[in-house]
């Protein structure tokens, strides 16, 4: 799930300052779970823009999916044609997809943080950095690239303090935890398996996946 947080309302209004007719767009998936772009937040945003003409509010199931966005915007085609700007309560990918689908000016109302694991509402944890070279099978299903602030793939580093991380002293070093898990599984031989540096040539932005037709 993509974790987002709200931009300062004043900043959102600043970027929409010359838009008189607006549409508020929410996301009923990730941003709804984060309570940044669900129906409540769409309503709040509409109230924030009560000094303008709010032509429509809409919650799209996956605004990042252009097919779904295009389908849902067709339902408000008339309002869309008259809108000066769309206020996007979505992740950055969603906001850009909306801009591409509608051709309208879009104001991003959220900042995008990370792809997160959901423990429960209000508790989201980053567990993957999308490096493209996953070593989870050698590290007892704990990603050191993400869980170590230095991204050390062959740890621990010299900063370890007892069992604790140099940076977050209230947390165990992930390499300590990896060691313990491997020890419990009788797989300690994997601990010093050497992990090459990440080949970032595979990760240059913007990344694309395009299926070839069979």
């Amino acid at each position: 799930m993509i974790v987002t947080h709200k931009k300062d309302p004043g900043i959102v209004k600043k970027y929409a300052s010359d838009a008189r007719k607006i549409i508020i767009v929410g996301c009923s998936e990730c941003a709804a779970v984060c309570r940044t772009g669900g129906s409540e937040q769409v309503k709040e945003m509409a109230e924030l823009f009560s000094d303008r003409e709010v032509l429509a509010t809409i919650s799209i199931e996956s605004p990042c999916d252009k097919r779904i966005s295009a389908r849902d915007f067709r339902r408000i085609a008339e309002e869309l044609s008259g809108a000066d700007a769309l206020i996007a309560l979505t992740c950055g990918t969603g906001a850009q997809a909306i801009a591409e689908v509608t051709g309208k000016r879009v104001v991003a109302a959220l900042d995008t943080d990370f792809a997160g694991m959901v423990e429960r509402l209000g508790r989201f944890y980053e567990r993957c950095s999308h490096c493209g070279e996953c070593i989870l099978n050698e590290t007892a299903m704990l990603c050191p690239v993400t869980l170590c602030p230095k991204g050390v793939r062959n740890g621990p580093c010299e900063g370890i303090k007892g069992t604790r991380c140099e940076v977050y002293e209230d947390r165990d070093c992930v390499w300590h935890t990896i060691y313990r898990r491997l020890e419990d599984r009788g797989e300690l031989d994997r601990f010093t398996a050497y992990h090459e540096p990440v080949d970032w040539s595979k990760c240059h932005s913007p990344r694309e996946v395009i299926w070839e037709r069979p």
Partner: peptide, 12 residues
């Protein structure tokens, strides 16, 4: 650079 320790530190 290393530190004193057992387990993961010593192995590394």
């Amino acid at each position: 650079r290393s530190v004193t320790g057992e387990g993961p530190v010593a192995r590394r």
